[in-house]
Computed example of a mutant assay.
Amino acid sequence: MKIKDLLVGVALGFAAGYAVKEACAAKSVSPEKALKQVKENVSHRIPISGSWIHMNPEHYEKNELDYNVYRGGLSSTASGETKQMDFVVDAKTGTILELEKQ
């Protein structure tokens, strides 16, 4: 019986380890979720009247670091004037890497 208990324990250990590995694996943020996060982070500073995002991630290098990113833009209308802003968001975390007025 002890060998059976040992084998069950080992099997459960491997199964738990695999489940944790899969749960911790780096998954990308969806472009929709990334756009939503950008809008939430910026909306308290500027009124957003429109937005867009590229659906396919692309390679981006900043400060000698490589990222997979989504590119997108926001438009804001204040006092009858429309302003455009472009952004770059890390596809893995949803962190804004760059935000520029045009």
Rank of each mutant, 00 (worst) to 15 (best):
3 I>W: 09
4 K>T: 06
8 V>K: 15
9 G>T: 10
10 V>R: 01
11 A>N: 03
12 L>A: 15
13 G>M: 03
15 A>E: 10
15 A>M: 15
16 A>D: 01
18 Y>G: 02
22 E>R: 13
23 A>K: 08
24 C>I: 13
25 A>T: 11
25 A>N: 14
26 A>R: 14
26 A>I: 11
26 A>F: 10
27 K>G: 14
28 S>G: 09
28 S>C: 05
29 V>N: 12
31 P>D: 04
31 P>M: 04
32 E>K: 14
35 L>N: 13
37 Q>F: 10
37 Q>R: 07
39 K>A: 14
40 E>S: 13
41 N>F: 07
42 V>H: 06
42 V>W: 09
43 S>N: 08
49 S>W: 04
49 S>A: 04
49 S>P: 00
50 G>Y: 14
53 I>S: 04
53 I>W: 00
54 H>Q: 08
55 M>D: 13
55 M>E: 15
56 N>P: 00
57 P>N: 12
58 E>Y: 06
60 Y>T: 00
62 K>L: 14
63 N>L: 02
63 N>P: 01
65 L>K: 15
65 L>N: 12
66 D>N: 11
68 N>L: 14
70 Y>S: 05
76 S>Y: 01
77 T>K: 14
81 E>A: 07
82 T>C: 02
82 T>E: 09
84 Q>Y: 11
84 Q>E: 07
86 D>M: 10
88 V>C: 02
88 V>T: 05
89 V>L: 00
89 V>F: 00
90 D>W: 03
90 D>P: 02
92 K>W: 08
101 K>A: 12
101 K>G: 03
101 K>R: 06
